[in-house]
Design a protein around this nucleic acid. Sequence first.
RNA 1: GGCGGGUUCGUAUAACGGUUAGUACACAAGAUUUUCAUUCUUGGAACAGGAGUUCGAUUCUCCUACCCGCUACCA
Length: 531
Amino acid sequence: MERRTRVRFAPSPTGPLHMGGVRTALYNYLWAKQHGGDFILRIEDTDSHRFVPGAEAYIIEALSWCGIRPDEGVDENGQVVSVKSERHPHAPYRQSERKPIYRQYAEQLVKGGFAYYAFDSAEELAALRAQMEAQGQTFIYNHSTRGQLRNSLTLPAEEVERLLRETTDWTVRFKMPEDRIVEMDDMIRGHVEVNSGTLDDKVLWKRADELPTYHLANIVDDHLMEITEVIRGEEWLPSLPLHYLLYEAFGWQDTMPRFAHLSLLLKPDGKGKLSKRDGDKMGFPVFPLKWVNAEGEVSRGYREDGYFPEAFVNLLAMLGWNPGDERELFTLDELVAAFSIERIVKSGARFNPEKAKWFNKEYLRQKSDETLRDAYLPILKEQGIQITDGNEKDFDGGKFSKEYVKDVVRLIKDRATFVKDFWDIAPYLFRRPTAYEEKDVAKFWKEENTVLAKELATFIRSWNGPLEKETFGPAVETYIKEREWPMGKVMNCLRLSLVGASSGLGIADMICLIGLEEFGRRVDNAITALG
RNA sequence: GGCGGGUUCGUAUAACGGUUAGUACACAAGAUUUUCAUUCUUGGAACAGGAGUUCGAUUCUCCUACCCGCUACCA
């Protein structure tokens, strides 16, 4: 029988979601949607010591910002669901709330001879480990040592019963077979074999907090939640044999999900996986959203840095996956259609911040002038600019209409990567220059040029046709050419007056935007200041 | 140390035994432009190394090197 596709993203709320984690979530989401299935969010909070307040909310908000909406696990208010309902049939979705479920499964494995009780304390084990390490050996809790340790395999039955009853720091460990080739299939890596003899007897359940470890909780929940594919990070590949064996021990082989292990995201330079520190050091975000930790340390986010969520999702998708053709720009829906696990790259992807910016630039250009204008408005307000609905451009009062802002945006958007670049690109479209770049003044503001520029200014001031780029621009150009004036020198004198420097937008564009009156003011100011 | 995974221009990647090894970002040069930016054109730039299999290996196998991950009562 064909099973409905169901995948899950199962982060641990130990901090903000890393961009690699978002990519994992994205790939899961794409796979689910492509197959008309469900994307489930499950919170793996079985380690009470590492719980970080706010991390869960952060994860949900980050996914939401990316447009990734879980079908199950999170309700309309953005809360992880604790109570069963038609839409959330497998609630609760926090493993800490599923606590009572796991013990029976651990017991089941012990009864079946696949696991056993271990009474060694964490301290004893640590001491043993240290001792063997001092001798240049590695301690491993498995067939090679379990016979000499304190567990239900070595202790008399009555003693085991007593310890089970009277002590609370015992665990259930998986009895890893001594010598078995575990054959596995990974959707990305293909056939993988590992000899179980090199693996250890992993703790599955702890009496101390009555909580399972990742391995048990993960397998039990994936089974109960009817997960069909497990798409997760490469760091889990070494645990895959254990997970295979666990499915086998439970007798769940028939419905065991297929596995796909994603390669890790690497640092832009050098070696190693991408970490929080790299971003801080190299000036790019590692997290989707800004995060402030308990110590008050701030980690920047893509959202706060000005990335569009579409661009972020797009660049993440292309990090370790490609469509097989030369397309690079994809919306979420297009990704759903184009995605395939076969085309996921096996090797780790080094993150390239420059390319990330390129994606944003492309998305910025695709946006309408209205959208961009609306995004620019708050920045203008911060700069003390008042926005009106009328038809104003008041350089003295700092009041401008939305329409004017839209015209500005249309003119400058090609020069920007982020909306936040807008202001720096052309503040002079809102504020009269008050200073003039010395170097540019020295270069262009010479008697022989200014004489001509002043004459040109007079011509422009007397312009009485419609102030439109199409007619005004060529007219100015013709005026200069007819007189055989040096175009660059004359124009840059005007530019100096308008901008305060010899760089910036086209003269005609600017004049059409700011108007003849403002043009005159700026020319007068420049003459007053520079002679 | 043990186990597993990986290795194509600086970076991301294409190629699924036969190509002048393609594309994008970045970089460089040129063109366009009144400046800057944009845009356009062009250019440099890679199969980790060694054996084998084959008529033929970037592609398949093995070895070496390097990189990454795991090796917790963390996920």
